[in-house]
Nucleic acid binder design. Structure first.
Length: 575
RNA sequence: CGGGGCGUGGCUCAGCUUGGCUAGAGCGCAGCGUUCGGGACGCUGAGGUCGGAGGUUCAAAUCCUCUCGCCCCGACCA
């Protein structure tokens, strides 16, 4: 490709609205352009990257036995009501819905369980036709509460979604295992460093589920990884050994103490010279269910934090969020900051974290403004609530799986997510097949997503330097950047053209900067920004049949005879 | 949803407080010339309903109201 002809327009300045590196560099290098919040146009260079990622995805999905389809992204409300997701997703405010000219409601879909289940149930009637795994690479829509970080959290994005249908759980586990392997191969082939973590199923549903996280400090997800074994989990899901707290000793009489203005454990710790782990904080939530809401009080040892996802799962709620002041006052009869289990209003559901077991003589809120209770004891002063693991694990805590490992806390970008769905959708949508006894059974499903556009952004997050992008070779828009320093010099022009011709003949995608009257500095700066893995510079040595070869990532530079260019480029690309 | 900020050529921004001549700069773009290995220089030039609507005024980019869009922060761990 001749750069003089290419639709590739770099920007001299950083776009003012770009916050994260990938957004800034992709916009500046002319790969993407914003059209609306969370909605981007992909220029040719970006399209090439997406095609490369897609091609890798396609090859590995096909290798794993999946078959490609294209499902509608504009879908009728009916099938979403069948699965029960219409109301839930609309309530969550993340579903783009619209009304057609005759008043029928439709939506732009975030995932395609309904459509694929419909497709399969009308086609497959027998266990003998199973298993099947169908996938597509298609645009998806989510009306994000707050789109941000460029391609990282867009409202429109490209996703590969796959759906497996098996006759039983064992088949599902097999399909899932195949996908897991395929995903590992995909991200390895994309040249990304990633971690597989246990995850929470969230709105999609299902049991076993793992996420593929690209390691990046700017990631939106926090992950905990054991340094001693292979345990790794998203913080939403992570467990850990309970850190030791101070013991309270033999029960003493409970007493009420004035604590004007002390709303935090730290303030109380100071006032009473009491370890924070001797306190129980009572965190009030609003739990939302399909048909109702309730107030829930979670009792947590003072030095630990509540994991809201675990609370929602323990309750079977659609969502939980922190109670607002009105709800807090209704539940406690006091201003926020003084909630406690003793004397909390009836109707408030109380749940305890495992950490409160065995605590004695603890401090907690008195449900009375400016008062706390000291030396409170379960059984005597207040009933022991049902306890569950509701704690948010943190880096530095002990691994839940092995004896001596410690959890490290890092961040990641979720680029893939695989689920063992089970029969949630097939049951709801009456997607049935006959088994060998002619018994009608629901398909056992799995679903598997990869954020294709997010993979490209994550690759930039993970691979860049101060000068620009450093594309991993397998997903670079072109592998080689031939730069003709001065095309008006015949020897330079001929050398560059020869390199382009021979490299393309050898199967490489080449971008040839043949622009006339563009200064060398501009060409080099642009090349750094665009970030192709190998650069071939035809410059002042061209008259002697010599060009320079430079590796973008390392900066390593070598002078190479024209005859050897193809071989040398091959060596550097590992091809 | 709450709070804050911003909308002025393709991009980055100044001008607005205190209303007043043909609305500015840099970059980019076009032409000419000089340059030619890390975002060169000179000259000439094109390009703007100042987000939109309404209002105040002799006069509005500037003041007021409404509206649309975009960005950031937050959603209170008691």
């Amino acid at each position: 490709m001749r750069q003089s002809q290419a639709f590739l327009h770099t920007l001299r300045d950083d776009p003012s609205d770009a916050e994260v590196v990938s957004h800034r560099l992709l916009a500046r290098a002319g790969f993407i352009q914003k059209l609306a919040a969370g909605v981007y146009s992909y220029a040719p260079a970006m399209t090439r990257v997406l095609q490369r990622v897609s091609q890798i995805v396609r090859e590995e999905m096909n290798r794993a036995g999946a078959q490609e389809v294209l499902l509608p992204i504009l879908q009728p409300k009916e099938i979403w009501e069948e699965s029960g997701r219409w109301e839930r997703y609309q309530k969550g405010g993340q579903l783009f819905s619209l009304t057609d000219h005759k008043g029928a409601e439709m939506c732009l879909v975030p995932t395609a369980e309904e459509a694929v289940t419909t497709l399969v149930k009308r086609s497959i009637a027998s266990y003998r036709q199973l298993p099947v795994n169908l996938y597509q690479i298609h645009t998806k829509f989510r009306d994000e509460i707050r789109p941000r970080f460029g391609l990282m959290r867009g409202r429109e994005f490209i996703m590969k979604d796959a759906y497996s249908f098996d006759a039983d759980e064992a088949g599902l586990r097999e399909s899932y295992a195949k996908m897991r392997v395929a995903y590992q191969r995909i991200f390895e082939r994309c040249g990304l460093k990633f971690t597989i973590v246990q995850a929470d199923a969230g709105a999609i549903g299902g049991s076993t589920t793992e996420e593929f996280m690209v390691n990046a400090d700017t990631g939106e997800d926090t992950i905990l990884v054991c340094d001693g074994c292979n345990y790794a989990a998203n913080v939403e899901k992570a467990e850990s050994k309970l850190p030791a707290g101070e013991t309270g000793g033999e029960p003493k009489p409970m007493h009420l103490e004035a604590t004007p203005g002390d709303k935090s454990c730290e303030q109380l710790s100071k006032r009473f010279s009491l370890a924070v782990s001797r306190m129980i904080k009572t965190v009030l939530f609003r739990a939302v269910y399909a048909e109702r809401e309730e107030t829930v009080a979670v009792l947590m040892r003072g030095d630990l934090d509540v994991n809201e996802v675990k609370v929602a799962n323990a309750l079977g709620a659609l969502a939980v969020d922190l109670a607002d002041d009105v709800r807090v006052r209704a539940a406690t009869g006091a201003e926020p900051g003084f909630a406690g289990p003793v004397g909390i209003k009836p109707g408030v559901k109380v749940l305890g974290d495992l950490s409160i077991q065995g605590m004695t003589n603890f401090l907690c809120g008195a449900n009375k403004t400016d008062y706390h209770l000291l030396d409170v004891n379960f059984g005597r002063d207040v009933a022991m609530p049902e306890v569950r693991d509701l704690r948010k694990s943190k880096g530095g805590e002990g691994c839940p799986k092995c004896a001596s490992g410690k959890l490290g806390e890092t961040r990641g970008i979720e680029v893939g997510h695989i689920f063992q769905l089970g029969t949630k959708y097939s049951k709801a949508m009456s997607a049935l097949f006959a088994d060998d006894q002619q018994v009608q059974k629901p398909f056992v499903m799995g679903c598997y997503g990869i954020g294709v556009s997010r993979v490209a952004a994550a690759a930039v997050e993970q691979n860049h330097d101060k000068d620009g992008i450093v594309w991993p070779a397998p997903i670079a828009p072109w592998q080689v950047h031939v730069i003709c320093v001065n095309p008006e010099d015949a020897s330079q022009r001929e050398a560059a053209e020869r390199c382009e011709r021979e490299l393309e003949a050898a199967g490489f995608d080449v971008l040839h900067d043949d622009r006339v009257k563009v200064s060398p500095g501009v060409k080099f700066k642009d090349a750094d920004l665009v970030g192709l893995p190998v650069r071939v510079v035809a410059g002042r040595d061209a008259k002697d049949g010599v060009v320079e070869l430079k590796v973008r990532r390392t900066g390593a530079m070598a002078k190479v005879k024209l005859d050897a260019v193809t071989a040398e480029v091959k060596a550097r690309l590992g091809a």
